[in-house]
Design a protein around this nucleic acid. Sequence first.
RNA 1: GCCGCAGUAGUCUAGCCCGGUCUAGGAUGAGGGCCUGUCGAGCCCUUGACCCGGGUUCAAAUCCCGGCUGCGGCGCCA
Length: 429
Amino acid sequence: MLKTHFISDLTPTLDGKEVIVAGWVHLIRDLGGKKFILLRDKSGIGQVVIDRNSQAFQVAKDLTQESTISVKGVVKADKRAPNGVEIHALEIRTLSVAKAPLPLDVSGKVKADIETRLKERLLDLRRPEMQAVLRIQNSVVKAFRETLYSKGFIEIFTPKIIATATEGGAQLFPVIYFGKEAFLAQSPQLYKELLAGAVERVFEIAPAWRAEESDTPYHLAEFVSMDVEMAFADYMDVMHLIEDIFVNMVEYVKKNNEEDLKLLNHELPKVSKPIKKITYKDAIELLQSKNVNIKFGDDISTPELRTLNKELGEDLYFIIEWPASARPFYTKRKDSDPNLSESFDLIFRWLELVSGSTRNYKREVLEEELKARGLNPVNFEYFLKWFDYGMPPHAGFGMGLQRLMLMFTGLQSVKEISLFPRDKKRLVP
RNA sequence: GCCGCAGUAGUCUAGCCCGGUCUAGGAUGAGGGCCUGUCGAGCCCUUGACCCGGGUUCAAAUCCCGGCUGCGGCGCCA
């Protein structure tokens, strides 16, 4: 047996009990006649004491940092120990010896550049800070799923190898599919809409790919997209849903990841319903009043969003009702003003986290909107044909997980969040 | 892709402006020694580096040019 307890299971009440713990050698403090090993497992770091007289002493002599070991020992409650409890080793089994020196200091004494960290990513992911990020991400995803489950959504899985571009715009990665040209999906957009036409409420958490030049702390060639589509609903309905999701995610992380947040020295932004909404038109006017050179129809780019964030004084805000021309063909125009659309972006400070809209659900309208963007409806027949058979009105949104995680961790780059980021220059590890 | 900044041992960093005293300093790691309560353990010894190529100069880590790589901002992009 290699392990009977996780390190965090050990409490002073177990005093005198024989246990087996296993993990990585985080740090060794060698006092000559006595050694202390800080042993790390998924649950935390605990102290193993090795006395000169024990059998374990000889084995411990050859240990290196990050080697994996299994320790049979007796739990001792001792106020001198870091958690008030420690293990006095009887027997140590070396499971795997780590080479020294390590290419990255896991114990945190010497900080490494992001470049080194990504290159030596597995060691980086052993750092307590990165483990905290992973646990927070797990909570975020769990709260997202559970909010949607509670509202009757079901999780779907759509094809990631597709025949044609979904939205125009973004560049796709081509793949050779049994001798034919195909592409990696940039978004599950069209499939999730179709599925909402079958089961009403769907969501998907899956990778998406964009072959863009974008070289910023907010872009990845491969990212995780959290997508939702809801039939018999409009953009206002899905914004309410987003508010519920965000409130739940923040509450869940606050409750379950207190230690992780402390470790990252991060405080979550306050999120309460309703989240501030500003129309695109008002946003443009506000920017113009601050002497920003911008006009109706322009995209609101990062520098402008920074200004908006400052002026609004809100961490989280919706920009709603974008010009229809600035949105993809499936976005429904506003009945009262066809130049505008029933759309929204949710912005965290100056970073777009979510983008959504009411969708067009009438075939004629979709065909017109495709043509208006220079796209050929014939190429979208696989999608359009289903609109002949009772497609309900629907609305939905997509959210970038790595960007969302910046809000939950205080990290500065999605490359730090992604375990093995893919960008213009990185294909390994 | 553009602009700015940077690249020094396994890792992190000082030195670069004002070229020579740099035989490149420190931390951490690694090897060795001392040490039975460390908790960033301590003390002593040892080890290991100027991104690549060209140029200026008596002399280049230091100045100049080009390349590569990274970071930030922007662009492209949801």
